[in-house]
Design a protein around this nucleic acid. Structure first.
Length: 501
RNA sequence: GGUCCUGUGGCCGAGUGGCUAGGCAAAGCUCUGCAAAAGCUUCUACAGCGGUUCGAAUCCGCUCGGGACCUCCA
């Protein structure tokens, strides 16, 4: 089955065909490292991590490029650049590199906890100033940009006129018609330098207080926001590559501008498939800095935000994101996250048991119907993922399978109901999708073996106590362990198991 | 004003015109020394009004509600 993805450019699902199989080039807009990542940021990175993993699973050799925006109008959250520049002491001055390092570290930390695979290349905007300048020169030479007071602007009007003839007007991605755009009176610096309101900056002249600045043919300044992605995607993926991803809020103007810039420079639409994840909302509203309603990932992991009823494990967040389709909005609430936490725990326990379940090698299915049903549910994993990454449907099937597996575990269903072949398929595919493709991982981690030994000892003592009907002792062990965060469970067969956390 | 998305049961969320989404919560039962877990069962839906159709949550129209974007905010 071929993979189909929804292409924002054509507004429909399309079969994914790489330009140069088995190689796949994928560019995803990364964060601006002038602040901490919040829950909303987690979504694109998890979504495209799943896509990256799934493409790998399909056998493609993927070059995944995700940038770090570390240039531009830079200052630390809530602190004015002017304040800093006036300080005399070196150590009190805002050092851009320090800021960038701090937030890059935090971002990487969060990505690792969410178990996102690192991209193949993670280029920085500041590391590609030369490429950006070269690109701007080219655009000027072609007549689609002009200089004004040390800044360079892209001539959207001209581009739109010329490229409309080539069926690629400005606004093709977001479905906007230039003439229809309202002349909103948003106040921006040096707005009067532009020939038209719709023009956007390729290079900005840096005022004296601006802390980040580079030499350019147009004087000291810094690159516009959009040009970095065009420069870096072209450099690492070529004039035309397969997938360009990012949040829906970047569709306009960011991606639209990228298309215009790259098309002028390379004479090609930069990417074939444009994919956009939807927003995470809170109380029905987009989570974003401008709404002042963000919950940072570090706060989520530690529970240190007034709105949070508890801390949430990074895997709970990942699972929460997978439970909805990436093109729909996803609403945050404590209730929803707690539901995800429980659901994930249940799935993981089933998976844990399944992994070590051994059946006789040549076992035939005693329940043909159930055997067929299980096979069907498992085989649908691929089918659903191929259909524009329908992770929630795959999870739904996993939960249906969980009921079957638990029933077998608890002996409500015979152990030989499924054939050894089906069990093998189930084990293989569950592991593949849960761990490799969904990137979920459990907590059987910091178990050095010593802890396990101690717990086994307590379990033995408790078993002995129960045998003597000494429930005071057995309950004491269970209850005290519970307060320490260790749950003991009496299994059907008289065995006991434990879970931590 | 423009472009687009959206309104599913207590909550979150799938839903490709006809066939159970799923998870969490709630209730009952089974199991259990008691729990927990698990299994089984049950419950509350498709914003409203029209239309197309043998049949619509799903297509069309209108109304109402919510949201995103509209140029350097990433």
């Amino acid at each position: 089955m071929p993979l189909k993805v929804y292409n924002s450019l054509t507004r429909q699902k399309e079969t994914f065909t790489p330009i140069n199989a088995p190689y796949v080039g994928m560019y995803v807009c990364g964060p601006t490292v002038s602040g901490e990542s919040h829950l909303g940021h987690a979504r694109p990175y998890v979504t495209f991590d799943i896509l990256y993993r799934y493409l790998n699973y399909h056998g493609y050799k993927v070059r995944y490029v995700r940038n770090l925006t570390d240039a531009g109008h830079f200052e630390e959250e809530g602190r004015e650049a002017e304040d800093k520049i006036s300080k005399k002491a070196v150590l009190e001055k805002l050092e851009p590199m320090e800021l960038v390092q701090k937030y890059t570290n935090l971002y990487h930390w969060a990505m690792a906890l969410l178990n996102n695979l690192p991209p193949s290349i993670e280029p920085t905007a500041t590391g590609h100033i030369i490429e950006q300048i070269e690109m701007i020169k080219k655009i000027i030479a072609d007549g689609y940009a002009y200089e004004a007071n040390g800044s360079v602007y892209f001539d959207v009007e001209k581009y739109n006129t010329d490229y409309s003839k080539k069926n690629q007007p400005y606004g093709i991605l977001s479905g906007r018609v230039l003439e229809d755009q309202l002349d909103t009176t948003r106040e921006l610096d040096n707005q009067d330098e532009k020939r038209n309101r719709s023009d956007f900056a390729l290079w900005k002249n840096a005022p004296p207080e601006h802390i980040m600045r580079w030499q350019s043919p147009w004087g000291e300044g810094f690159p516009g926001w959009h040009i970095e992605c065009s420069a870096m995607s072209t450099k690492y993926l070529g004039d035309e590559f397969d997938i360009h991803g990012g949040g829906m809020d970047l569709q306009f103007p960011h991606h639209e501008c990228e298309i215009a810039q790259s098309t002028v420079c390379n004479h090609k639409m930069p990417a074939r498939y444009w994919m956009h994840n939807n927003m995470i909302t809170i109380n029905g509203r987009k989570m974003g800095k401008s709404y002042n309603n963000v919950i940072k990932l570090s706060e989520l992991f530690s529970g240190s935000h007034p709105i949070l009823e508890q801390a949430y494990h990074p895997m709970t967040i990942r699972f929460f994101i997978l439970q909805s389709h990436y093109r729909g909005t996803l609403d945050f609430s404590n209730e929803a996250l707690q539901a995800s936490e429980k659901a994930f725990k249940r799935l993981w326990e089933v998976f844990d048991w399944l992994s070590q379940w051994v059946v006789p090698q040549t076992q035939a299915a005693s329940d043909i119907e159930l055997d067929a049903k299980v096979k069907k549910l498992v085989n649908e994993f691929d089918e659903f993922m191929d259909d524009d990454l329908s992770t929630p449907k795959v999870l739904a099937n996993m939960f249906e399978l969980s009921s079957v597996i638990n029933s077998i575990k608890d002996k409500h269903i015979a152990g030989d109901a499924l054939s050894s072949v089906t069990v093998g398929l189930l084990q293989t595919q569950m592991r593949l999708f849960i761990e490799d493709i969904f990137g979920l991982k459990g907590d059987r981690s910091d178990n050095s073996g010593k802890l396990d030994g101690v717990l086994q000892l307590l379990i033995d003592i408790r078993k002995e106590a129960k045998r003597r009907k000494d429930f005071v002792t057995s309950d004491k062990i269970r209850n005290e362990l519970a307060t320490l965060g260790v749950q003991l469970k009496d299994e059907k067969d008289g065995e006991m198991s434990y879970t931590i956390g």
